[in-house]
């Protein structure tokens, strides 16, 4: 479906319930979220590496809302062969062994079978951005805290471009992203969560992306207040 026809008109801000937040949002089941995230970056001129929807939920009504994992789409970066020209330091080899072990265990748990063998896909290098995306699934942010939490709190998009700016950020997630080779990270709030995009390329703010996000995720935010 085209984005416009698939998005219901202007729903009131909805906040999910911790544990299974998507259940309370008929417009944002996970299949729909996945399609929207894919549409957002597959059709973009820019080379986005991933997109994540951080879902707002309430633990109890006396506490601030929490942004937890809603869904994510990992596209990957174009130039994956860069690493092939890099030297394989002992640290790199140790880190790769750790990542492959974790992926092997996750594969085994998901599939319910023992995995192994030299041809197993997990024996392929686990890139920095794959790892960053994977560990993102374990993270959550209190409203006002961290890059997604700040975007949610301020109701304004946050767009950070450049290694230096990411490294100098007060937000741990921005510094972490920079450490895993990302050069651009963007957080755009919605009524019920935050859309985050990351790229290993330098991407500067465009109205086009903001508009696509607005259409796909049906936002009511001040696009000028960045």
């Amino acid at each position: 479906p085209t984005p416009r026809s698939s998005v219901s008109p202007a729903p009131a801000p909805v906040t999910g319930i911790a544990g299974d937040p998507l259940k309370s949002m008929p417009y944002f089941n996970q299949e729909s979220l996945q399609q929207r995230l894919q549409t957002l970056i597959d059709g973009a001129r820019e080379g986005w590496t991933y997109a994540i929807f951080w879902q707002s939920s309430v633990v109890d009504f006396a506490s601030p809302s929490v942004l937890g994992w809603g869904d994510g789409y990992y596209k990957g970066e174009e130039d994956k062969n860069k690493r092939k020209t890099a030297s394989f330091s002992p640290d790199f080899i140790t880190e790769q062994a750790h990542r492959k072990k974790v992926l092997r265990e996750l594969n085994s748990l998901i599939s319910g079978t023992q995995t192994g063998g030299e041809n197993d896909a997990v024996d392929e290098e686990v890139t920095d951005t794959e790892w960053f995306f994977l560990i993102s699934m374990t993270q959550s942010f209190v409203n006002g805290s961290g890059l997604p939490g700040l975007a949610m709190y301020s109701s304004s998009p946050i767009w950070v471009t450049g290694t230096e700016r990411l490294a100098a950020s007060h937000c741990e997630r921005a510094r972490q992203a920079q450490g895993f080779g990302l050069q651009t990270i963007v957080c755009i709030p919605s009524a019920n969560g935050v859309v985050e995009l990351g790229s290993t390329e330098l991407i500067f703010q465009t109205a086009d992306l903001m508009n696509k996000v607005k259409v796909l995720f049906n936002f009511n935010i001040d696009m000028g207040a960045t």
Partner: peptide, 30 residues
Amino acid sequence: VADLPIARRNSLTRFLEKRKDRITSTAPYQ
């Protein structure tokens, strides 16, 4: 994994499957 919230479990499954497809369906590092 069984204790993971459904959204994370679905995302993890999709990520692992797509990664496997990507690796097995493309010639490496052309």
